[in-house]
Amino acid sequence: MHVVWDLSVILQTYIICTSSAQPITSKLDESWWAYKDVVQGSFVPVPSFWGLVNSAWNLCAIGKRQSPIDIETSHMIFDPYLTPLRLNTGGRKMGGTMYNTGKHVSLRPDKAHLVNISGGPLGYSYRLEEVRLHFGSEDSQGSEHLLNGQGFPGEVQLIHYNQDLYANYSEAVRNPHGIAVVSIFIKLSENSNAFLNRMLNRDTITRINYKHDAFLLMGLNIADLYPDTIRYITYEGSITIPPCYETSTWILINKPVYVTQMQMHSLRLLSQNEPYKIFMSMSDNTRPTQPLLQRCIRTNINFSKQGRDCPNNRALRPQYRGNTKDGHQ
């Protein structure tokens, strides 16, 4: 305990000293963090230090509604008022640019082709800002969220901002009801999801081998990414990168999407560095799960016992019963 405290003081002193000598740069504010220790070079904070090294990121350490979480199905509450999520593409396919950001595979849609979601737990309309991939170095890990303590090989996160209240993502992410994230677990199969196949086929994924690489994709149908189910799990949480703002409504779809073993292997071959630096796989780009505390996990997956409240008494919470059609395996 004392060692951790002493180290945090040293880190905070380091930030104070460097920031007093020169203005805090955008590099420090936005990208001066990592998921895992760097092989060589200067110190870059891993998740356990995100909330200690920059006062603007203190929610990462002291927040009460942080993400991701371990979804314990015994804690879920059936909410009969949770309607199906609505996806609106205007009947058009979209284009987007796929990036290697050094931390994620990121697909950012062309602003000319708007994709919106509404309904479900959302009281507003949210516009798609980014599709982000998290994945592991092994098949047993890679998703940010866990299901009853179990990880999945990966997780797709469709990140949206509230277009009814805010002008853009940067404004929305700092404010209440600002962000909605649709999350879908990735599993392995002999066949790939049609949308992910466009991103992960060999001709495409090899275009973004290194940090800052980018590649334009056209004719994408975002509806292809959504599994065939109206069932989901939802809770109030945060974005999972610094500054960890607690402005996100999470919607976890109750069916996975699939990629092939070869496509997962291709993801693990992506470097989080530029080509002239040492190779370091982008895999395991996940934040550890955070405490649920007093939050509710609601779902429209029907239980044998139906409840409309959100009791803190765990004994009153209905037990989850997965079914063969919509339940996780």
Rank of each mutant, 00 (worst) to 15 (best):
C310A: 10
R298L: 13
M282G: 03
Y161C: 05
E138W: 05
R92E: 14
N313I: 14
I117T: 06
F43D: 03
K27G: 08
K305L: 14
F185R: 05
A61P: 08
F135Y: 09
D6C: 13
Q22S: 12
Q22N: 14
K277W: 00
T206R: 07
I24A: 06
I278F: 08
I208A: 03
R127E: 09
I186G: 05
L59Y: 12
D326L: 00
H134I: 01
V9P: 00
K103S: 15
T97I: 08
N312G: 15
D37M: 11
H265S: 11
S67D: 06
A34N: 03
I297L: 09
S192I: 05
Q319R: 14
T249E: 11
N197S: 03
D213C: 02
L217F: 01
Q319I: 15
D203T: 13
I15V: 12
L220Y: 01
L82N: 04
F303G: 12
P176D: 10
R308A: 13
N285L: 01
D6W: 11
Y235M: 06
Y166G: 05
A56H: 14
M98C: 08
N300E: 04
A112Y: 01
Q157L: 10
G96P: 03
K111V: 04
P275N: 04
T89I: 06
N148K: 04
K325C: 12
G151L: 01
R231Q: 15
Q66I: 10
N168P: 00
T249P: 03
V257L: 02
L267N: 05
N313E: 11
L85G: 04
Q272N: 05
P291E: 01
I71W: 07
E274W: 11
Y235F: 07
S238N: 09
A21N: 04
P47Y: 08
T289N: 13
W32Q: 03
N273S: 05
L158E: 00
D164P: 02
H113P: 06
L216P: 04
H212P: 02
F152I: 05
Q157F: 00
L107T: 07
P288T: 04
N58W: 10
C17I: 14
I159K: 11
Y276S: 08
V44I: 12
V4M: 11
N302W: 14
H104P: 00
S183L: 11
I251L: 06
S106G: 08
E155K: 01
R65A: 13
I205S: 04
D110Q: 00
R298V: 12
D139S: 11
V181W: 08
